[in-house]
Amino acid sequence: MNELELQTIAEITIRTLWVCGCALLLALAIGIPIGIVLGSKRFLGRSIAVSTVNAGMGAPPVVVGLGCYILFARSGLFGGVGLIYSLTGMIIAQTLIAVPLVIGITLAAVGSLDDEWNLQVRTLGIGRVWRLWLLVREIRMGLLAAVIAALGGILSEVGASQMVGGNLDGKTRVLTTAIMMKTSQGQWEQAAGLAIVLMGLTLLVAGVLTVIQQSGRTR
């Protein structure tokens, strides 16, 4: 592979990491608090909220992408904002894909705690913020699982990135859309090269998180 191609692959990889990283952080920032609230509080409409989250966890990225496309397109509700075919639009779409995963897994992690967990900590007279800190510490393995699932989901997702990002060269092209493109162009060697990078990235991410998880478990 010549230098130009390597440079292109590097550029696409960095862009992919940027988009997925931003989407992941946003999804965690939004999803974890919602997951904790849904997991530990009882309120009217909670079961509706939980089933919505479960449905969202199974929502195909392509459908999310289509929804974003319809909203972001020139004729859409947010047409004037200029989100279509932009990195910001892609980050929003990927965040929407990842948020239900983060909420769902956080919810399950909170749910796996003893029913009385929150009461037990409350009866120690610990302040709200510290209780939250203890809770996050307690479910950190679940949160790691959420990170893995969310990152795996958006790193490998192609539908929404293609629809919202448009695979524009030098602007919104990411690994998955580039692989699809190279495949449809018959440039299978390049597609394979990009696929190896993507595989490597997912394996690396999963590997690093697994190592953290393992070391956390023995502690």
């Binding site: 705690l113 003893d114 009385e116 967990w117 009461l119 037990q120 900590v121 009866t123 203890l134 510490r137």
Partner: peptide, 13 residues
Amino acid sequence: VTLVFQRPAALSG
């Protein structure tokens, strides 16, 4: 005022 539950929760650590 504090309560020790029938099945005490062990915090991780």
